[in-house]
Design a protein around this nucleic acid. Sequence first.
DNA 1: TTATTATTTTTGGTTGACCAAAAAATTAAT
DNA 2: ATTAATTTTTTGGTCAACCAAAAATAATAA
Lengths: 218, 218
Amino acid sequence: MQSETIENYLKTIYHLSAGNSNIVNNKQLAEKLNVIPATVTESVKKLHELKLVIYEKSYGTRLTTSGSKMALNIVRRHRIWETYLANELGFGWDEVHEIAEELEHIKNDKLIKKLSEKLGHPNFDPHGDPIPDEKGKIQKSNVIKLSEVKIKSHYKIMGVTDHSTTFLKYLEKHQLIIGASITIKTIEEFDNSIILICQKKEVSISPKAAECIIVEKL
Amino acid sequence: MQSETIENYLKTIYHLSAGNSNIVNNKQLAEKLNVIPATVTESVKKLHELKLVIYEKSYGTRLTTSGSKMALNIVRRHRIWETYLANELGFGWDEVHEIAEELEHIKNDKLIKKLSEKLGHPNFDPHGDPIPDEKGKIQKSNVIKLSEVKIKSHYKIMGVTDHSTTFLKYLEKHQLIIGASITIKTIEEFDNSIILICQKKEVSISPKAAECIIVEKL
DNA sequence: TTATTATTTTTGGTTGACCAAAAAATTAAT
DNA sequence: ATTAATTTTTTGGTCAACCAAAAATAATAA
């Protein structure tokens, strides 16, 4: 089995099992990997042989310890590259994923080490997703989307995932400033709008906008 | 045919034909690509179908205009990456080639554009090899190794291709400074040592050291 | 020019990653 | 519990990129 194929399978199993070692089924995998389930059956058998997953017939697949280690390393590479592309090379967040899908397969640990160093060894990527360290350890994040906040809690606005001028204008109009602290007042039952207090003013944010705003729990 | 395979064939044909459209034969290609000649026969037939090369049976292969364009683009990508790894990420010149062999296949023009921009659109890589521009144009270089200089000519020391401390000590001892102008006095017939004048002092450089010093003709 | 050597091509075969369709097994619904 | 729907696996097959060995062609030397 080719290393790029292995990496893509492990990464996908990792994501589908939500970081835990939950069981993943063939149909899901097939969908994410753009192959048919029959192909997945074949592949997971081989990965089982390689002791990277535990595959139980007609039941499902989960990562072994070494498979998990590899998966975390790929996730690390992917997110380091995304962060590097965004922060050091000025790419938009909408562009970085696709390029990182290719770059993540470059096999050179020193390269990732250098990139991480340049970035100041970040623990989170621009989307707020954690970057596993060299040993695969993940730092728990308090960073979520504004659309996921709980009522009456306090947050800090960390950034946005949409850089369009229309969205930036929206932020300005609603007086939302990156770095500002906010308190969630209520969430409208009718349309899920979020009513929050920012700089002592009450503002209402649409669910669509809330999807694009990254906040950190205080 | 997979794009990475195509790229490796075109790049290799380009190098073996020395930038011109000289004919390349299967044996040479097979050697460089680490495959047997029979495989090359098969592949160049396909490349001919794709109009990227002109393959004449039992005679040889050369690049078409579009094949040449592609080859130059790969060379560009390779050398931009090498330069970036060396200049921006602090890799040694001995390390960059291998990594660039992988990175050159990442298909994203904007990425190369950004890297080139960061580097100030260099026309030459750290080895003195020219970097083709976006259109494939190559700037003729006056940069050569000290081992290739002509007698009684003037040069400027541009850099070195060996970064070991032993070599750097050698340079110091011989009072060779990057940026300094030099004049070639003679070349020893016996052992090809180069006698040159640098900062008004006469020094003798061994052929081995001369291989690692990059100079520009003035 | 003929023999020898080198190179190229042909032929038949492998492996990895995939697919389509049929069969088997599992899960859900009545 | 039986049927129906879904998911999984099996079976047979493709395609790209490779190889080994034999046959054909070209180049070189005697």
